[in-house]
Amino acid sequence: MTLEFDHVNCIYDAETNQPVKALSDVSLTIGGGEFIGLIGHTGSGKSTLMQHANGLLKPTGGRILADGTDIWSRDYDRRSLRARVGLVFQYPEHQLFETDVLTDVCFGPKNLGKSAKDAEALAKEALEQVGIDKSQFALSPFELSGGQKRRVAIAGVLSMQPEILILDEPTAGLDPRGRKEILSLVKRLHREKGITVVLVSHSMEDVARFADRILVMDHGALLLNESPASIFSRRETLQQIGLNIPETLLLLDELRRAGLGTDDPAMPLTPEDTAEVILSWLQ
């Protein structure tokens, strides 16, 4: 499916003397099986944008179209939209509530009106996809480790079979191993299921390696909407709005300044690729 934001505005507290413009004239298209990174610092509007995508928030101006239909038109079924545009919030603690893992993951499909049997089948499939072992199905979700809770939370949304999967900061608070595991899980889901993935993060490093396209938000506006390579050629803009630049790129910049590099626009993001560039420069 395709989701289109058409000049979307969102103003909080409009009636008070301090209105907050959370989204300002945002136009963009999401869909087509892309892997999209959504970057911005805290308060840049990325969370607000995300909550507009599945109709949790209503724009104060502009339209949001799902396959061409305005999701705020009368009689539009926004509940089934929420199944098609799956949204995983940052803290799994905000959604886990059942006594065991499997029942919790069934919650979404059951809400969609699936029978207990179908819901369970969908839940099992989703849990398998996120790498939760059968032996853990009967555990209380509260006994799991941080990384496992996140997997179960993702499965809770996956079980509704979304066509677009939006993940808000799925690695926040995890240790390096946990981060790596969740990121490769997201990458695998994108590849295997062919769904559109939007990864929301304030870390460039997390997003840059996987994304086909990166959206950069600042002060409620969509500042950039381009490929990673083209985003990274604007390092100064990124730094101005307080985003971190991948360490690898900063290193190459420094080597260039020291006269060790050439002007070739290589933009390696992994240590291996970076070492390769440096080796080619040194020869």
């Binding site: 390096p176 360490e247 440096i278």
Partner: peptide
Amino acid sequence: IGLTIPTVTQIAEILRAHGI
């Protein structure tokens, strides 16, 4: 033990392995 080292240090290691 599930930890990594800083990116710069990682790059340096690879370079060393290549004889730098």
